[in-house]
Amino acid sequence: MGTLNYIARRLLFSACLILGVSVILFALINAIGNPIEILLAERPGVTEEIIEAVTKYYGLDGSVTDRYFTWLGNLARLDFGTSIIYNQPVGDMLWSFGIETLKIQIPGILLALGLSVLVSTLAATRQYSRTDFTVIAGAMLGHSLPGFFIGILLILVFSYWLGVLPSYGAYSTRNLLWDSEIADGLWHMVLPVGMLTIFNTATLTLLMRSSLVDVLRQDFITAARASGLPERRVVFGHALRNAFIPVLTYLGILFGLMLGTAPVTETVFTWPGLGALYIMAIQQLDYPLIMGETMVITVMLVGATLLTDIAYVVIDPRIRLG
């Protein structure tokens, strides 16, 4: 079975998954009832006729299946409709808020990945040493503290006490740092990225250290050493790549759940990202926004899973392409 064939089949499966989610999402949203009624019912002076007219205006008077396929067709053309509350195209909103989310999430994952490789290698190659215990204790602590707590701690230290870093927002409204938009943006990213990095590093380190300790005990590591290869090649070339295999799943989940963890981070730092947007959308029952963002989250999760599966095939030749 060729790799391309495998990828093609995984792609097809992913598409079905996304389609399935879209059906469930649509059914659930409809189960809540007519959104127009819910949104307008309490307001004074709203008559039956007005509700009917608005329902018609939003195309909500057709049969459920008709409406589903209209919605799906629009989605396929990346037309997510118009936000009820903000009166802007949902697609544009998802895009601009999405960029802000990626700006802190991607560095938060990549930095954590680099750091955890470094730290877990340091610990695992000195198993049971003081370094190892310190790393384990630190990682346990970081892993068990809730993310928002780390965030608040960072704000307390760096914004409140030291006063060197901004605690909210993605940009300064006036007085840009060094009069540069880029510098100012990076300056604002430090704390949220810091919080995500600490949180992700802790979990990744715990996973990677124990995986690496296991691998370093294997015969093929002793064999590599017995072959005269220098320690750094044995550790980085032979051990780390094997140790990475079980970590890959978690990394995939991190990427996939970026938007799932975003609400906490973005609330703590008042960050204008998809997480904050999602919360607002739900609080204000902005149906097109909720549905659009849910579909984006689904696509990202399924996409990350797909990439993880493909990465497995690349990294581990034992995977049977079944």
Partner: peptide, 28 residues
């Protein structure tokens, strides 16, 4: 250590008990 590296694998080599675990599974 460095000098030992020129003995290991080169002047003295090892054959292991379990061939299933003594080859690295992810390299050809």
């Amino acid at each position: 250590t460095k000098a030992l590296g020129t003995i290991r694998g080169r002047r003295i080599a090892m054959v292991f008990q379990n061939p299933a675990t003594s080859l690295n599974p992810i390299y050809s």
